[in-house]
Amino acid sequence: MELEILNAKNSKPYGKVKVPSGATPIGDLRALIHKTLKQTPHANRQSLRLELKGKSLKDTDTLESLSLRSGDKIYVKDLGPQIGWKTVFLAEYAGPLIVYLIFYFRPELVYGKAASLPISLTTHIAAGCYTVHYVKRLLETIFVHRFSHATMPLRNLFKNCTYYWGFTAYVSYHVNHPQFTSPCMCTVWGALGAFALCELGNFSVHIALRNLRPPGTKVRKIPVADGNPLTKLFDLVSCPNYTYEIGAWVSFSVLTSCLAAYLFAFAGAFQMTIWALAKHRNYKKEFKDYPRQRRSIFPFVL
């Protein structure tokens, strides 16, 4: 089979590619295109589509399933410089650890002479919570998560790091401020308990999602609760990992009584709600027997 390869930007032809068989998946085709036609973008930068402005083809589709024949056209769009997902996640989560602890150690440069005032117990607890959260995220990135795409645009690295590091600096400056006002200790301990519960819940859901699909397979299944009682939230929402995440940040905000932390919780909740609604919609489209009582992210509400 021979396919004609064109540039999606201006419809200029790159040339022709000989494909060994119709069973070739798109992922392999991308590598073959770059190998055969050197002027095309590297495989990771290619987005293949059948029409000039069509949808990007999935790596797992085969040429047969797309009804491609000899002489058909494939358009290649250059996605720009790419970076590994894992690299991005490690960078965006390691930064908050470092940034938070910078303020925690009360540099005189930031706080002036008041830097030597004693640090309250609540501030210590908050630092512990923050550290635990981001260490957990780093470890999950290394050992738990699997990524359906290997790479993402380089621009995302700067966007994501700006968001995470910037908000961390904002929250950290206020929580570690010498004139920090702690809420009453019963609020602090209660919020700490809620925070711990949500962190454990989030972790449990991530483990359950990982175990949903054994390594190397592509089978899609409806996520359900496993033996861990914290995963029961799957019965109520499609994305309990996001629900627990939001719960953790709200708890942290209550614990510190810090408006900046509430803003961060709200911003994160807004973004995760969008993702959850999209994922919920995809689940319902993909699985005909998807449980009807489930909501996207907030039980009984949304």
Partner: peptide, 9 residues
């Protein structure tokens, strides 16, 4: 300015 109950500046 701090101090205030919402710990915001």
């Amino acid at each position: 300015e701090m101090p205030n109950p919402w710990n915001i500046t």
